[in-house]
Design a protein around this nucleic acid. Structure first.
Lengths: 304, 304
DNA sequence: GTTCATTGTCCAACCATTGTACAGGACAAA
DNA sequence: TTTGTCCTGTACAATGGTTGGACAATGAAC
């Protein structure tokens, strides 16, 4: 900085750029509340000093924190800074370590696979599997799914993220389970594998010996595999239900073809919309990884 | 906080975010029970003080613990806090690493390294690093230490456990940190490495680039390594302090030889008995992995 | 099992606040 | 001259509050 901090220098466009506000908003705040009243040059154009820009930035952060502009605009600089600090600290406290979905989304859309994977691994380690699944993986995939739906991103960007999540999940499974056998997979037509991988990890955590079948399997195969392996649990992840009647009938046939003592679990976004129907004919629908793990733990306990 | 605790400042949206309640619930509680009756601003909108938000948070935690709102809403703050503490302690009791630690102790004393390692890895995945360190690794080591002291087990049995914990911790570190550099090690004479490994993992979680120095290093070496590497943090694990005066003087000389901007952290059972003395001359003593990680996160943030 | 109070959620109607858009003009730089 | 940026002033729609009421699920008591 080679010029004085107080000297006015920047046109409104620059101020907008630096504060993240639009020129319209800056003018509105000046007109309505006198938030910042910059000097004018000979032609009458606003010229902002660094100090004024700094203040606008603080005001912007305060409004982002959920406050109304009118309630903070009269605060002196120091109080304002303190308020913003408090708000952001409180927000950071809510979000558990490194679970910053925004940042992960950035990494995914910029196709930075390695960095994304490292971040994912870190937040997995910080929170454990359940927290990771519920506060990181699911929100991230959901957001990517919506962005893809809205045409904002390409399939490959979504793919980078799910591949990274898959790698993290598979690298952490160690196949050391010594309990009863659980089968994990998805129905035919289902391309989304991540949910199944998370279920596999959850089952392993719950002490099961996991046989991971992968995605895209017809119901008969699942039933057959369960019978051959002597499994006591079958976990099926459903994201895109296709026709929901179809999903229902397939689950019904699976459930009917297996003996009572083999529990059938369904999970994922696609299963959540069908909870009542599925539970009706005996398919368990835990919502979220924690519940799945607890259910599996209880079942393993009962078997032991 | 240098602003007055009682001054009303937050709109209902912020209150909702900070308490985890929805605005609807907050209003319902006010309407039906007068749970919290905030001031109003000129426009008639609710404005909550920090104290009121704190109370709402307590009420929320009480209801999460299974209590009905009507049964706790009339309690004065202190009684409420007590109640919540009790509830949460009871809940923690239920989901015990306690039974877990028993089983791990069995595995360690029966020298079943692979099974022990698998179990450790599983509980690490279930709870995340902090939970693992505080509810599994520390209790297990503590118990083994006591048993060894009482002559109930041999050193090799303790060794099996610490080796398994070390393997789990090292296998999960991935060296992908991209932040400032942190050095991790123990003082000379200190054979216990596990604490340092956990600190290394914590630092990595907090976004640091970790240089792991290992155990048994003289203070001069630590200082020298810190200077050469340009580290901004030095984490030292102390389990057996030997002579406490000795540990103090070594930390004092380390602290004195390094510039202000390099933080020195001490942790472990041996450091906990010397907290006041160490903090006196500028060595930070977070208690537990969570606090260490948070401290490192804050420092990394400040550096960025 | 039935009944009843509790309790979280939702809705409608309304209001003030607030971000955004647009029209019409000025002016400096290309 | 054209172009892009900024100016003022007005208008509009979205947001997020407010009250009051209704409803359905839950869970305890009968």
């Amino acid at each position: 900085m080679n010029t004085d901090f107080e000297v006015p220098r920047h046109p409104i466009g620059v101020a907008a750029e630096r504060t993240g506000l639009t020129p319209d908003v800056i003018r509105a705040w000046e007109r309505r509340y006198g938030a910042v009243e910059p000097e004018r040059d000979d032609a009458g154009q606003r010229v902002y000093s660094d100090a004024e820009i700094e203040r606008l930035r603080l005001l912007h952060r305060a409004t982002e924190g959920g406050r109304s502009i009118s309630s903070v605009v009269d605060l002196p600089g120091e109080a304002l800074a303190e308020l913003v600090r408090g708000d952001e600290a409180a927000k950071a406290e809510l979000r558990p370590a490194g679970a910053d979905v925004d940042r992960l989304y950035e990494l995914a859309t910029s196709l930075n696979g390695p960095a994304l994977e490292a971040s994912l691994r870190r937040s997995m380690l910080a929170q454990g599997l359940s927290g990771f699944a519920e506060t990181v993986a699911a929100p991230l995939l959901h957001r990517l799914g919506e962005a893809w739906h809205a045409g904002e991103i390409t399939p490959s960007q979504e793919h980078v993220a799910s591949a990274a999540i898959s790698r993290v999940l598979t690298s952490l499974r160690d196949g050391s389970g010594d309990g009863p056998i659980a089968l994990v997979g998805t129905l035919s037509g289902e391309r989304h594998e991540v949910g199944a991988l998370m279920a596999a990890a959850a089952a392993e955590l719950a002490g099961w010996r996991v046989v991971y079948l992968g995605p895209d399997l017809p119901p008969e195969d699942l039933v057959d595999a369960a019978q051959r392996s002597g499994a006591r649990a079958l976990c099926v992840s459903v994201v895109y239900p296709g026709s929901s009647a179809d999903v229902q009938s397939r689950f019904r046939s699976i459930r009917a073809s297996l003996p009572e003592e083999v529990e059938v679990y369904a999970g994922g976004a696609g299963a959540e919309t069908l909870v009542e129907e599925l539970e009706l004919f005996g398919v368990r629908c835990p919502s979220g990884m924690t519940e799945l793990r607890e259910a599996l733990e209880r079942q393993a306990e009962a078997l032991a």
